[in-house]
Simulated scan of single mutants.
Amino acid sequence: MKNKFLIGLIGLGIYINEQAKAYDWKQLNSKKIIHDQIGNFPVLLILSKDGQSFAAFKRSHKVKYSI
């Protein structure tokens, strides 16, 4: 199965390499940026300026980003 994003009313989910993880939309909305790892895959979630859309990226293990 390909990598996927699932968005619901209270959260969003990311599916990568046969592993999935859910995130609370309110937490992303308050933090604006979340560093995490799904299995061995480091990810970065960023809330857009409009507060209604997001982006997810593969990130380096060594780098932490901030807004």
Score class of each variant (00 low, 15 high):
51 G>C: 09
65 Y>C: 12
60 S>E: 03
55 A>D: 07
63 V>Y: 10
34 I>R: 09
3 N>L: 07
34 I>L: 04
9 L>A: 09
3 N>F: 07
14 I>V: 01
36 D>Q: 02
13 G>I: 00
57 F>G: 07
2 K>C: 03
10 I>Q: 06
26 K>M: 02
28 L>P: 03
12 L>M: 02
18 E>R: 11
10 I>C: 05
34 I>P: 01
18 E>N: 14
3 N>W: 08
6 L>A: 03
56 A>M: 09
4 K>Y: 01
30 S>R: 09
46 I>V: 12
65 Y>N: 07
55 A>T: 13
45 L>R: 00
15 Y>F: 09
25 W>Q: 07
12 L>G: 03
66 S>F: 05
62 K>Y: 07
47 L>G: 14
37 Q>V: 10
44 L>R: 05
63 V>H: 13
46 I>D: 09
4 K>S: 03
4 K>E: 04
7 I>W: 08
60 S>N: 10
25 W>S: 08
23 Y>I: 00
14 I>T: 07
15 Y>G: 06
48 S>A: 14
37 Q>I: 06
53 S>E: 15
46 I>T: 11
46 I>F: 11
26 K>Q: 03
43 V>Y: 08
56 A>S: 13
16 I>D: 01
19 Q>F: 02
15 Y>C: 07
12 L>V: 01
43 V>W: 04
26 K>V: 00
9 L>Y: 08
22 A>W: 00
63 V>E: 14
24 D>E: 01
59 R>T: 08
56 A>F: 09
21 K>P: 07
26 K>E: 02
62 K>E: 02
34 I>W: 04
57 F>E: 08
5 F>S: 13
42 P>K: 04
42 P>V: 01
55 A>S: 14
39 G>T: 03
10 I>E: 05
52 Q>H: 15
40 N>I: 10
66 S>M: 12
54 F>V: 08
6 L>K: 12
37 Q>E: 11
63 V>W: 11
39 G>N: 11
63 V>L: 14
51 G>W: 12
43 V>E: 02
60 S>R: 05
23 Y>D: 01
52 Q>K: 15
46 I>S: 09
8 G>D: 03
47 L>F: 09
54 F>A: 09
50 D>E: 12
23 Y>Q: 00
7 I>M: 10
23 Y>W: 06
9 L>Q: 12
41 F>N: 12
64 K>E: 06
64 K>Q: 05
26 K>N: 02
19 Q>V: 14
45 L>W: 02
5 F>Q: 15
8 G>Y: 03
31 K>V: 03
20 A>Q: 13
35 H>D: 03
61 H>N: 12
56 A>H: 04
46 I>H: 11
33 I>Q: 07
11 G>W: 00
19 Q>G: 05
61 H>G: 03
53 S>I: 15
47 L>V: 09
6 L>D: 06
49 K>E: 15
33 I>F: 04
